[in-house]
Nucleic acid binder design. Structure first.
Lengths: 216, 216
DNA sequence: CATGCCTAGGTGTGATCACAAAGCTGCGGC
DNA sequence: GCCGCAGCTTTGTGATCACACCTAGGCATG
């Protein structure tokens, strides 16, 4: 009825706002696997029409954040064990490379920020807050990888995180962790020492651990 | 006006048909870099309304096949040299792994099919047909990687091919090739010999070659 | 009591329209 | 001659609607 379209308005189009909101929810594990999302339901929830909702969902489906049945129903993905292991293998391939590329540019300020994030991560563990745990964990990795100056590679890694989002929630609430990820300290140590092979190993161990023994 | 929506109709919804058509065109290098695509233009070209076109384009943008300006204009991407090198590095990381996983399942029938594809590739070279060259080249790789039983990894590799599509066209028409890619024979030889390290090397060399010295 | 039909609600899809912003053309002023 | 601005055109965005399909649930029939 009234205004729409505001490319210069701060930054966001409606479909883009929806996309970012839903993407964050999926990646941080705020949604369980197998949850159905309907166009009209989301449209009503955000007070918009179906059109921008469709675009946001289509975009998320394209990235693998959501899955779509043959009839067009959109749900959060329920991954098979094979798929989870494959995604873990992709992380094990990409993320050591990203870390290695970030290493030469990892100065003290960065390591300090990583330690701060790691502290917040430990707090999330203490509070048994799965979503905060996943969020701070991913933030730790993204903050490091941003230094790699490899946007396409980072984007692919984030896509993988997206696909794992709902599963991570189910996983981390199942095997209630009582301690922060041990490999983060190894990563920090390797960064300080400038130890490239050690860094690759630590990152690989970190992203693999937890996803390896799932026994769905 | 009349019927729409046909989930059971053979297979395709309109937006899906558009998506596949455009995706193929981009991946095979049928479009030059920097070409603008308008919603109404494509809608008219395919005789449909803007709605399904928007979904198809949004999907392709999400996969990096097309890029979108701040104002929402959609064009084929013009990649910087840094971006091209990064994408080549991703290929060099992913594809040897895919080949390695395919190796144990690469029986004679597969190798024979690869040789057939390679012959078609050589014909494309002889005809100076850039699109056919790119198509058969990608088909060679995809046929091999399909045996890896790693759909997520293959999907990522295809996304990278997509992003390189328009650039590949510009590249291969520039440095007019007069012989088929030399490493394909090495890949076939390594497959026959069951030589895993040799296969990794050959694949890495194949995907890197050509993209390395671009000097845009 | 079981089984089949059939109606009603819900869902995705595609067309159409109103609107605002961006791009473009050409005219005028400096 | 060059710059700038006004107006028109083009373009993307979002809302709304009609329609086909799918799913349940109830009712009648065997």
């Amino acid at each position: 009825m009234l205004l729409q379209t505001r490319p210069s308005d701060s930054v966001l189009a409606v479909h883009d706002r929806l996309y970012r909101t839903l993407r964050t929810q999926v990646m941080h594990g705020e949604l369980d696997p197998g949850v159905a999302l309907t166009l009209r339901g989301i449209a009503k929830r955000f007070g918009v029409s179906m059109t921008p909702v469709r675009e946001a969902l289509r975009r998320l489906v394209a990235e693998g954040a959501l899955s779509m049945s043959a009839s067009g129903r959109v749900t959060t993905p329920e991954l098979s064990n094979e798929r989870i292991e494959e995604l873990a293998a992709i992380r094990a391939l990409l993320e050591p490379e990203l870390a290695s590329r970030a290493l030469p540019r990892a100065h003290f300020a960065l390591i300090e920020r990583l330690q701060t994030i790691n502290t917040a991560n430990a707090e999330a563990v203490a509070k048994q807050d799965a979503v905060a745990y996943i969020r701070t964990n991913l933030e730790f990795h993204r903050t490091l990888y941003l230094r790699a100056q490899a946007p396409a590679m980072l984007a692919i890694a984030e896509t993988v995180w997206l696909q794992l989002g709902p599963t991570m929630r189910a996983l981390y609430t199942r095997l209630r962790r009582n301690e922060p990820p041990p490999h983060h300290r190894m990563i920090l140590a390797a960064l300080k020492a400038g130890d490239e092979p050690g860094l690759r190993l630590a990152v690989r161990a970190d992203v693999t651990q937890g996803l390896r023994h799932l026994a769905g």
